[in-house]
Design a protein around this nucleic acid. Sequence first.
DNA 1: CAGGCGTGGGG
DNA 2: TCCCCAAGCCT
Length: 302
Amino acid sequence: MDLSTAPAEDPRPDPTDLHLRVLAWYADHARDLPWRRSDATPWGVLVSEIMLQQTPVARVAPVWEEWLRTWPRPADLAAEPAGEAVRAWGRLGYPRRALRLHAAAQAIVEQHGGEVPSTYDELLALPGIGDYTAAAVASFAYGQRHVVLDTNVRRVLTRVLRGAELPSPAVTRAERDLATEHLPDDDRTAAAWAVGVMELGALVCTASRPSCGRCPLADTCAWRAAGHPSYDGPVRRAQTWAGTDRQCRGRLLDVLRATDGPVPAQALVGAWDDADQRERCVASLLDDGLLVRLEGDRVGLP
DNA sequence: CAGGCGTGGGG
DNA sequence: TCCCCAAGCCT
């Protein structure tokens, strides 16, 4: 290559080049996920995004299929008691998401005529929908241009553009600015870029053991060029599990999911030995609305 | 804003 | 076995 006529070297890769590489890679390697099919509705996309918050694709897929079969439109879910959503949620984890999705369906019916709203601000106002999910639905379901910053996108951009292994625990202003600078200008390309970078992070540029040999951005990746330096930022405290309220709440709710209707409060005793903790968790589940107390000293799903 | 909130699979 | 998660949100 003749460098004598090349322009001054820009250490940063050309955004358009990144876009083309990611779009081409996605066209060849994207997974055929049900919520990406051409017949998927905005409601289907929204449901998938809520379910995928902290839960792997493999476990979401079958529940999503059944959910959409049962409640193909927001109004179908909104007409049900919230407990039916909690029951159908099964073992996806974080069941408060089921409650919020049900509440979102009701808000969609009451405030948006039963149609999933298309603007970021309207989506953000729905229960259970934060910055990421609002941007994702607006982008994936409605083809709009938004900065979609999930853990996958953050990791890819951090590696390729900043040369670090992992992003900081919380999104910084500089990180968001960087993502914005690299967003394609037009809606269509920006939406394709968002889903493409996410997929690249999920399949190739993974948190552990990334497959740089299969990465379309390998030869422009700052992290790879730097020799894959290890993460040196603040360490997020490892989450304990055994004996926590989270485990206790899960056990308690599992009793209700396993039966059709309400159960005597006494039926929860076998689910957790520590009586104090059990009562505290029952109280918190009641407070969250995941559990309701009924007459005759019984408890049930809402 | 740090901490709470489920679950089951893989290294 | 034990540890680390996996497309965050809310307070």
